[in-house]
Write a protein that binds this DNA or RNA. Sequence first.
DNA 1: GTGAAACGGAACGAAACATTCCGCTCGGTT
DNA 2: AACCGAGCGGAATGTTTCGTTCCGTTTCAC
Lengths: 204, 204
Amino acid sequence: MTSSSAGRRRQAARNDETILAAAREVFLADPKAPIAAVAERAGVGISALYRRYPGKEDLLRTLCHDGLRQFIAEAEDAARHPDDWTAFTTFLRAVVDADVHSLTVHLAGTFTPSEQMHADAVAASGRATALFDRVRPHLRPGVTAADITMVLEMCAAVRLPDPGRTRQLRRRYLAVLLDGFQAHGEPLGSPPAEGELNWRWQQR
Amino acid sequence: MTSSSAGRRRQAARNDETILAAAREVFLADPKAPIAAVAERAGVGISALYRRYPGKEDLLRTLCHDGLRQFIAEAEDAARHPDDWTAFTTFLRAVVDADVHSLTVHLAGTFTPSEQMHADAVAASGRATALFDRVRPHLRPGVTAADITMVLEMCAAVRLPDPGRTRQLRRRYLAVLLDGFQAHGEPLGSPPAEGELNWRWQQR
DNA sequence: GTGAAACGGAACGAAACATTCCGCTCGGTT
DNA sequence: AACCGAGCGGAATGTTTCGTTCCGTTTCAC
């Protein structure tokens, strides 16, 4: 096996990425999209998909799990920053930019989650909470770590045809939200409870 | 035609409302829901639906148009309030509470819009902008009327199984956003342009 | 008592879709 | 140079989902 740059193995390895990227784009736009749409977007045939994943559900699961892992990675990266506020906002911006939240949440329920995913979900929650605790003193009373989830949810709702512009606008509203969480306005109502946010992970 | 209270006509008139309410619930939860789901939720047969609407698209259109009209009505109601800030926030709360935004935006593209709808959409935009202009001086630099649309979009993204709780949380984040728009933090990036928000009304 | 408005729900046909299958192409190996 | 099979494209298949139609029944209104 020599490694020519246009070799079959090379091309196949490249397709691995192409297909995952296409799947991300397509399923983020519409979680119910047909698998053929992914193949078309990737510029490959349907066989190329089924060679890699036993079925649609496995592809979705992989996508979601990757998102979860990226979430954790971003949290750990950002946590290294010595400044608390910078660490927190860097993390949020990274997650928002990469649309990781959509990946993990909008796709949940379209497949039966693996145990590893559950474990990673717990880990992710822990990392995020740790970051939150560091900035907690800078925030108005009544704000909790559960609010992070909703902030990400709201930013993910900002969606334009152009990805670049979408990212800009998400940062805009993330900034507004963060300023709002620092402001000292009227007391806020009760925050989301722990169990209230996990309903997404139920089967549909 | 006497008007007995359990008469067929009575029952039918009541079904008009029941069906619309059911359709709202079902299609807000899933814009792609089958029409049979609406009938089931309403507790009626499929015939009751097709007696009132020639087809699915007409039901969707009616639903969306009703939402648009309610949007306008809420704006006009709120505009009567003498205090600028109260008028503005009352309007936003009303729209968020009634989930009117989802009705108008998430359903767009599932049907071919009528001319009247387009006219009403323009009217709605005008009413909202008028309210915005009254509070413009209270907001940080760089905020525009187009931000209203995105605020509503983000609030609509807050969604829990329990409708009552959903409303509470939406108000929570609406308050945070409003405080954020009043705060004097870093300058915000460029706001959404006019044309950037109308892509939803294109056919899918 | 009769006609039809209103309706429930089965039946029908079309469309969408996940998955399978067959045949072709070439890179890699001998 | 001949060959093997990994990798793949895309048509074919079987199934499910869904919009719409149809028919029999009920229940008012007159």
